[in-house]
Every structure is written in structure tokens, then in C-alpha cells.
């Protein structure tokens, strides 16, 4: 099983990338983003991408780097408010954008990874999000049909990972990573700490290795803080 472990991001992505592909990325804001793999995507030159991610990074970090280099054709996201270059490309019509309610996005990725074609939810009923979507009533409550999402490649960031691809995330850096790990035709994980199989308590594994095809030690662990807010000392 040790063939899952690759030396670095570019070797782990070798043979997986093509223009026009769909890539799903874990993370919330800049927390828990696969920062090493995003850097390698930028270096690879791959473009015309559809990116599935809750956010779009910031101007000079995270997925914002791919946007700035004009590699992204379409974003599927729930909130993109921290990125001026994104705004410029979107308003000029260079970038396609599909907004999803955050819980719908998480569930669409989870469903895609679980082989579920679609599901009904009350989120978005009576709003723009419901336009063109099938509606049904369950127990007297209106719900709309949302479809599962899959990707050609999924990239995630773990805190600890073993040679079998088992992953553990840390605190709120977990966020979208567990669902994203399930939705890729191929999933590549970068982890802060690579350990031997058996070193992670099997009861504590968040993502079992079946969902992870390739694994690298994370070379970039900047873990940039977007809003450093401190308690007023008193």
C-alpha cells in the first residue's frame, strides 16, 4: 500500500491534470486548504478549470492564486466575498459563478461521493436558488431537488495521515475536507504529519484510506489567518 505515498505535489499530480477538468478543494476561508497542492496546480499550467470549493481564497493566497493566473473558468461556491480579483473577473464576464447555499454545497459533495444522484432540501425554497428546480412536498413541507457533485480530482489537507491514506483533520480545519475527499475520481491529500499505519487510533480516523489514492507530506503549512481577532484584556 505504500505506493499511495508520493514525494511531492508535482509527482502526486502527474498524469491527473487536463485543461477543462473539474477540481474539488477542501477548506473554509483559508482554514484547512490544500495549500501545497494549489501551488502545484499553479505551477503545472493546467487551466480552463471548474473549481468546487466553499470559498475562492483571497487575492494573493489559496485558490485566489489560480484565479489571478486566469486558470479558472467556473467557480461553484457559497461565498466569495474576500477576493477583489474574483469580483473583477466575474463582473467583466470572464468567470462563471454558481452560488450554492453552504449546507447544500456540503451535501451535494457528500451525495456525489456517496453515489447519490440527488436529494431534496427545504433550503432555498421560495428563493432564486429554487428557480428551475423540481419541487416536492414532504410531510407538508416544500423541498427542492439538488444534485450530487463529483470531480475529476479532489484535493484535501489533513493534519495527520498514514501510508494507507487514512486521514485525521484538526479542529475547524476539517470543514469541507471529509466530503471533498469522497467526491474525486482521484483524491490527493497533503498532510502536515505523515505517520506509520497503526499510529492513528482506528477509532479516530476521519477519512478512511479508501477515499485517498495519493498522499504527500505538505510542503506548505502557512495556515494563514484571515481575521486575527483577540479578546480585549480586562
Amino acid at each position: 500500500m505504500s505506493q499511495k505515498l508520493y514525494a511531492d505535489a508535482s509527482s502526486a499530480l502527474d498524469g491527473l491534470l487536463f485543461d477543462g477538468m473539474t477540481i474539488a478543494a477542501g477548506g473554509f476561508g483559508l482554514c484547512g486548504i490544500p495549500e501545497t497542492l494549489i501551488g502545484a496546480l499553479l505551477e503545472s499550467g493546467v487551466g480552463d478549470l471548474t473549481i468546487i470549493s466553499n470559498n475562492a481564497g483571497v487575492d494573493d493566497y489559496g485558490l485566489g492564486l489560480l484565479l489571478k493566473a486566469r486558470r479558472v473558468r467556473k467557480m461553484i461556491a457559497s461565498y466569495v466575498g474576500e477576493n477583489k480579483e474574483f469580483e473583477r473577473q466575474y463582473l467583466s464576464g470572464e468567470l462563471e459563478l454558481e452560488f450554492n447555499p453552504q449546507g447544500t454545497l456540503a451535501e451535494r459533495i457528500r451525495a456525489g461521493g456517496a453515489g447519490i444522484g440527488g436529494f431534496y432540501t427545504r433550503t432555498g425554497v421560495g428563493t432564486m436558488v429554487a428557480e428551475g428546480k423540481e419541487e416536492r412536498v414532504f410531510k407538508g413541507e416544500r423541498q427542492i431537488l439538488e444534485t450530487g457533485l463529483t470531480a475529476d480530482l479532489a484535493i484535501v489537507k489533513g493534519w495527520r495521515g498514514d501510508s494507507r491514506g487514512n486521514l485525521v483533520y484538526r479542529k475547524t480545519a476539517r470543514n469541507f475536507n471529509p466530503m471533498v475527499a469522497t467526491c474525486g475520481a482521484v483524491t490527493v491529500a497533503e498532510v502536515e504529519h505523515i505517520v506509520e499505519a497503526g499510529e492513528i487510533d482506528p477509532d479516530h480516523i476521519h477519512t478512511p484510506g479508501i477515499f485517498v489514492q495519493r498522499l504527500i507530506p505538505a510542503a506548505v503549512n502557512e495556515r494563514r489567518i484571515e481575521r486575527r481577532v483577540l479578546r480585549a484584556e480586562g
Binding site: 461556491a77 457559497s78 461565498y79 466569495v80 466575498g81 469580483e87 466575474y90 463582473l91 452560488f99 447555499p101 453552504q102 449546507g103 447544500t104 433550503t123 432555498g124 428563493t127 436558488v129
Partner: peptide, 10 residues
């Protein structure tokens, strides 16, 4: 500019 609904609709 629309920033997105985030979790508000849910």
C-alpha cells in the same frame, strides 16, 4: 457585487 449566501439560506 454579490458575495454569496454562505450558510444564511440553510
Amino acid at each position: 457585487m454579490v458575495k454569496g449566501m454562505g450558510g444564511a439560506m440553510d
